[in-house]
Design a protein around this nucleic acid. Sequence first.
DNA 1: GCCTAACCGAGACGGTACGTCGTGTCTTAAT
DNA 2: ATTAAGACACGACGTACCGTCTCGGTTAGGC
Lengths: 190, 190, 190, 190
Amino acid sequence: MTTTPRRNERSRRAILDAALQLLSETGYPDLTIEAIAARAGVGKQTIYRWWRGKGAVILEALTDTAAEPAALPDTGDLRADLRTVIRATVAEFADPKLSATTRAITIETLSDEALAEQVRDQLLRPQLDSVKDRLRAGQAAGQARPGLDLDLTVELLFGPLYHRWLLRNGPLTEAYADDLVDLAMSAIAP
Amino acid sequence: MTTTPRRNERSRRAILDAALQLLSETGYPDLTIEAIAARAGVGKQTIYRWWRGKGAVILEALTDTAAEPAALPDTGDLRADLRTVIRATVAEFADPKLSATTRAITIETLSDEALAEQVRDQLLRPQLDSVKDRLRAGQAAGQARPGLDLDLTVELLFGPLYHRWLLRNGPLTEAYADDLVDLAMSAIAP
Amino acid sequence: MTTTPRRNERSRRAILDAALQLLSETGYPDLTIEAIAARAGVGKQTIYRWWRGKGAVILEALTDTAAEPAALPDTGDLRADLRTVIRATVAEFADPKLSATTRAITIETLSDEALAEQVRDQLLRPQLDSVKDRLRAGQAAGQARPGLDLDLTVELLFGPLYHRWLLRNGPLTEAYADDLVDLAMSAIAP
Amino acid sequence: MTTTPRRNERSRRAILDAALQLLSETGYPDLTIEAIAARAGVGKQTIYRWWRGKGAVILEALTDTAAEPAALPDTGDLRADLRTVIRATVAEFADPKLSATTRAITIETLSDEALAEQVRDQLLRPQLDSVKDRLRAGQAAGQARPGLDLDLTVELLFGPLYHRWLLRNGPLTEAYADDLVDLAMSAIAP
DNA sequence: GCCTAACCGAGACGGTACGTCGTGTCTTAAT
DNA sequence: ATTAAGACACGACGTACCGTCTCGGTTAGGC
C-alpha cells in the first residue's frame, strides 16, 4: 500500500496561478520554472517534484480551470448549433489573451509526445466529442448524411480553423466562422 | 550610395547546411546557435549578424533548399489531382524525418509574428496557391461549384490535415488522405 | 536572523588552487575566469557569486596561503636584520616564479581601488609593520635616530626596491640589497 | 634601399588624440583598440599596422606630448631643488587626471617586457637622469657625499614616492614630499 | 600628368571570454 | 517527509574585442 503523498495544496494552487499569470505577462517561450517558483513563493524543487516541466504545469493549470465539458446546445437546427460552437472557437482564438494558453500548450505539444497525448485526451477530445455527438444527433434527425465518418467530419470543421489561426493565414472573424460552417455543411448535409 | 554588404557566401552556406544537419540530428528544441556555429566552423557573431535567431536560420535553409514552386498536375480529373497532392502532404507529415523541419518552423512561428509572416508568404502560400489554381481550373471544367470561396476551400483540404498532424489526433495514412479528399469533394463538386 | 550562506568549502578550495596553478602557468593577463572554473570543476556562476573578478580570487588565494605574519628577527644588530629582510624581498622579486603572483595582484590593484585597499591591508601592511616594529626597537636600542618618521622610513627601504622591480630599472641582486640597506642606514642611524 | 612608409600623419594624430581622450574617459583596462579606431575615424588595421597594441599607442601618445626633457633647476641649493622636483612629481601623482596615463603605461609595463624597456628608456630614464645630474653637481658643490651611488640615490628619492602611489600606502601631499626629501637628504648630505 | 603601388576607411570574419540566465539536482533548516 | 530557500555543475545565451582578412577608394611618389 503506497503512502499518500503529503502534498501541499496551498503550494499547488500558488504554482498554477503563478504560471497562468506569468504566461499572459511574458509569453510561453519566456516562461521559466524559476520565475514561477519565485512568483508562487515556492521552492523550485516543489515544482520539479510534482510536474515534468512547464508544459505539464500549464496543462494542469488549464484543465484545472476550464474543466467544464462545454456541452453543446441542441436547438434542433444543426447548422445553427455548429455556427454557435465555431463562432465561439473563432472568438477564443481571435482574443490574444485567451489564445495565449492554447498557443503555449500547442508549442510544447509539438516536441513532447507524452504531453501531446494528455492534451489530446484531456482538452481536445472532450471538445471534439461533444461536436461529434451533436453530429450524430443530426444524422438521426436527417440533417446529416448517414454514411459520414464523424471523426473526419469534426476535423473538417475545426481543422481549417486551427490552420488559419496557427499559420496566421487570414482573419478570424464571425463571417469567416459562418462561411466555414456553410461550406462544411455542404459536405455534411444529405 | 550604400555600400553592398560584403557577405561571405561560403559561411552562409556552411551555416544553413549545419543547421539542417543538426536539426535532423537533435531536434529543434535542442538545436542551438552555438552548435550551428561550431559545426559550420563559423563565429557565433556571423550568425547573429545576419539572422534574428535559430528560427530565421531554419527558415532560410528551408526556402533556400526547397525553392521549387511544386506545380500541381492537371490530369483533367480534379478529385484525382487533389488526391495526389493531399497524399503527398500526408506522406511528408507521416515521415518523422521530413516533418521535423516543418514542425521546427511551426514551433517558432507560434511565438514570432514576423517569422510567421515570412513562413506564410514564402513556404505556405505558394503551396496553397498552386492548389487554388487547380481548383479554379476545376471550376472552369465544371468539376467544382462556381460560387466557391477558393481560399476557404483550400483550407478545407489542408486544415484537417495540419490539425491531425499537429495535435496527433489520428493516423496519417493514404486511406485517410483519400477519405479527406472525398469528404471535401462533396463540398466542392457542383 | 539572517541565514548563514551555505557555501561549499570544497568548491572554494578548488577555485583558489586552480587559480594559483593557472596563474603560474599562463600569467596573469591570460588568466580567465572560464579557465579557473574549468580547472576547478566548478560552474562559472559559483565564482561570480563569491568574488568580484579574477583579482579578488587571486587575492584570497594569496592571503589564504601565505597568511604567516613573517615576524622579523631581532639579533640586536639593526643593519644586519634589515639586510636579512631586504635580501629576502629582493630574492622574491628576482624569482620570476614567486614574483608572478605579486605582479598579478599589483596589476589589478592599479585599476581597482577597493581591491587595492584589501591588498594593502592584508598583504602589504603586515609586512611593513613588522619592519616598523624592528625599527622602533632599533630606536630604543640607540641604533636609529629618535625623531624618525617610521612609516616614511619603511618606505625608504622598500620603495626603491619596488621601483626597480616594477620599472625594471636595474638588477635585483644581493649586492643591491646590501647597498640599499647601507644607504638607507645612513639616514636612519643617529 | 627601403621605400619610405607613406604614412598618413593625420591618422596618426587622430589615433593618439583619441587614445588619450578615451584613456581619461574610460580608464586603461576598458580602453580598446576598437574604440580608439572608431573615435579616431580610422580603420582598425591602421592601428595594428603601426603599433603592437594599446600599450604602444599610449606610450607614443605620451612621449609625443610630454616630450620636454624637464631640465632640473640648479639654484645652488640641492635640498631646495630636490624639493621642487619631488613636489612636482607628488602633485602629478596626486592628480587623478594626470596620473591616469602613468598608471596605464605602468600596467602594461608589468606584463610586456619589450614595452617596459621603451618606457624605461624614453620616459623614466630621462627624468631620473636629470636628477642624477643635479646630484652630481651637488657632489661637486660639496652638498652631497662624494662616494654616493647616484643611481641608487635617485631611486631612494623616487622609489618611496612610486611605492606610496602605486600601493596607495598613504597621502600624497606637499608635506610628504618635503619630509621625504629631508629624510633622503640625511643619507645624501656629507 | 600618369601609373601604380601602398595606404586608407570600413567592416566581415573565426575566435575567445565575458557575465547572465535557466536548467535540474542537491543540501540545509524549519515546520 | 515535505517545504522554502538557494547553492551547485552545467551549458547556452547574446555581446564585446581580438587580430586577420578582404573590399573599393584615395593618395603620393617615380616615371
